[in-house]
Amino acid sequence: MTQPTLHTAETLRSRSEAVAGSLPALLADAQHLAATILLGEHGRKRHGMGDEFWQYRNAEAGDSLRSIDWRRSARADGLYVRQTEWKAAQSVMIGVDDGQSMGYSGAKSRPSKLRRAQTLAMALAILAVRGGERVGLTHLSDPPRGGEAQLMRMAAALMEERETPDYGAPSPQILPAGSRAVFFSDFLGDLTPLERALGQAADRGVKGALVQLLDPDEESFPFDGRTVFESMGGGLRFETLKAGGLRAAYLKRLAARKDQLRQIAARTGWRYHCHHTGDAAEPSLLWLYRALEKGAS
């Protein structure tokens, strides 16, 4: 008979030590990844409150005298108003699926899907904070915030171990209206919760991106002969003597799943991207940043 109460303190301590040991490595990887992306200024070419020059326009009825750029106007026949770029801080909400399927890696040389998702998520958060944005995690009730302290809180929360099912599903708190969001997952489980989450997001004017992470083995299905397939949590198990004979059917179903994700994203104004853990992370981070910029315009 087990006695969980006797091991609770030791379990919590060991988990805390594991998180503390992994946290610096995650932050270092994320900071290095973010440093490779050349962003430039974060203005959005819309006039409003800010301090970066955008353009001059002819003065119109109703413009205050304080808004007139007298130096520019002195060089022309009319009066001109100096406009600045819109640089109001917005919120970027990030969701990382930590279901047990995300722990898979087909080779020791490759990171797990979860670790790559955590790295991409933190690199994106770093870029957002540098651009004056607020960031947050979708599974937490805490509001999005800016600053280095928020990045540390997010990294610690991403590394915290929780009891999870074989396949995760997005279950975000209420997203700030008009914000942007990203969901990182392998999306190999039931997609009903995802459709519901994106529908609710669309109702609040939230746009964003779905990033599907797959191990190269999940993409190509290199298995042959006698093979035992088992879920990461051990809840599902399937044995076959002719794994190669399943390849065509598997690839067909995977392609159908990707098409379904694209359709779900398109219906709600989101974008879809597939990332393989055997590839470099930089192109996906750059794609993601640009996708969020377009979604905010």
Rank of each mutant, 00 (worst) to 15 (best):
L214V: 04
T227D: 01
K207E: 07
F238L: 11
G235R: 11
A243S: 08
P222Q: 11
P216K: 10
V228F: 07
S220N: 14
F238V: 02
L213E: 02
T240E: 10
L236V: 03
G233H: 03
L236D: 12
G234H: 00
K242G: 08
D217Y: 15
T227V: 15
L241W: 00
G234F: 01
V206P: 08
E239I: 10
F223D: 09
R226P: 12
L210R: 04
F223P: 00
G208W: 03
T227M: 15
V206L: 11
F238R: 05
E230I: 09
T227H: 11
E230S: 12
G235E: 14
K242P: 00
E239A: 14
G208C: 03
L241V: 06
L210G: 10
K207P: 02
F223W: 11
F229G: 04
Q212V: 03
P222R: 15
G233W: 00
D215H: 06
F223R: 06
R237Y: 06
G225H: 06
G233L: 05
E219V: 15
A243M: 01
K242A: 14
F223E: 06
G234E: 00
R237C: 06
R237M: 09
T240D: 09
S231C: 09
G233K: 01
L210I: 14
F238Y: 15
L241C: 01
R237F: 04
T227N: 02
V206Y: 14
A209V: 04
V211M: 08
P216C: 08
A209F: 04
S220L: 13
